[in-house]
Design a binder for these strands. Structure first.
Lengths: 236, 236
DNA sequence: CCATTATGTAATCATCGATTACATTTGGAG
DNA sequence: CTCCAAATGTAATCGATGATTACATAATGG
């Protein structure tokens, strides 16, 4: 094993152990021709940290700053150059997850007929639940507010308000077209949201086994629950 | 300052810093006449730890084994004589909280007229939500399954199953009396639970500010949401 | 070209859950 | 009553984590 090999192995071990990438370049202090080669500065560490944290969450692992740093092959203190604390990182992660959530829902809404408010309402609920059940860790992060202070992610707040406004418009249309039994619209809106949120969280929090609902039945049950609710608010 | 004074001050500092209560008795190695005086053995540390943890949760603080030990004036390792790990402590805490939750709900149900299934269903939902909103930290612990492995608290599992069976009976009675629109009972049951669970968690997770619902309106909104749901499943 | 700023590293702290070896108490067998 | 074993608490220690500080290196713009 050459001297460089030994050094490389040493670096590898350190990377395995702690994820640190020593500043030492094996040769040529300035490798101009390969700007992609990891240099002392990372490139876009902020972005990479968010992605690493998202992936950690998706794997069901606990999101720790150090682990994200390890995956970015960077020292444990480096993330704090981009986020004042762990919560700020989580807020950024939540912002990204919420963006995807909103995109998914709005995509599904685009396929529902504009002229059918209750159909759109149903599509909203279904898209909401499908995403929540297929991205449980991300849904947890954006909904719980346990990982960072409320409102510390402007993106999350904005996208959330947008989704609330969307259901508000849909229900208003349904009411205008005389599709609803008489009831306070805000109450319907909140009840509907509580229903899907509660269903998503029952899944997330592992309640369904004790309700005797098998894994494969959950999506069908979600549909049934939404339909039950809509039948309850719709004019007979 | 006397020598004993110095020792007392030293002890005090250690208690302040780490919450440890040294075994050293200022005199009389065996104080028979006061069995309550803290001796080397604690008496019922297990119980005290659970209560300390419950109180920590109620204060909104993070529940840590060390902090519970501090409050019990015991060394950081002592709790592990009673709980194999942190999760086991949390499971015991959850068991205790769930016991209170069930007692509260069954108490409220006792006041509802037996002959009115839908009224009992409504009372169940209201009691559920009231307790959840007035004991947010306890509700969080018993519902989330984030603090300990599923099913590691037999008490929690049993009480939970009991509550599920209760709503099942109530709905069956309602159906027998012809009070319900035709629908799958299990679907109604799960939808109802998702509704109240979702509402409770929206409150817990701080969603209501962004829905424009003030603190004082929440209980009224809870009532409205439950009534909306019942009106939806009841035969017109 | 150089200085200012941005970004990463190294070293260090306090806290936490957990484990181990040791100390003290308690309770039962003889 | 005595003595020993089991139960229970203490002390010391480990590894992981979030966080902070001083320092090193790169990037940028006048």
């Amino acid at each position: 094993m050459s001297v460089n090999g030994v050094i490389a192995a040493y670096i590898h071990v350190r990377v395995m152990l702690e994820g640190r990438m020593p500043a030492r370049q094996t040769s040529r202090p300035r490798a101009r021709q390969t700007p992609k080669a990891r240099s002392y500065h990372h490139g876009d560490l902020r972005r990479v940290l968010i992605d690493a944290a998202l992936q950690l969450a998706a794997e069901g692992a606990e999101v720790s700053v150090r682990e994200a740093a390890r995956r970015a092959a960077v020292s444990p203190g480096a993330p704090f150059r981009h986020f004042p604390n762990r919560d700020a990182l989580m807020a950024a992660v939540a912002g990204e997850a919420q963006r995807r959530f909103r995109a998914e829902i709005e995509g599904a809404m685009g396929e529902a007929p504009v002229a059918d408010p209750l159909g759109r309402f149903r599509a909203f609920g279904l898209a909401y639940l499908r995403w929540a059940m297929r991205n449980p860790a991300h849904f947890e992060i954006i909904s719980t507010g346990r990982y960072f202070a409320h409102g510390s992610s402007a993106e999350l707040t904005r996208d959330n308000a947008e989704l609330i406004a969307l259901t508000e418009r849909i229900l208003a249309e349904a009411a205008e077209q005389g599709l609803l039994r008489p009831a306070d619209l805000k109450r319907i809106q909140i009840a509907g949201r509580a229903l899907v949120y509660g269903f998503a969280r029952m899944n997330l929090d592992g309640h369904f086994p004790r309700w005797g609902v098998e894994e494969g039945e959950i999506e069908r049950m979600a549909e049934g629950v939404i339909d039950l609710f809509i039948a309850g608010i719709a004019k007979p």
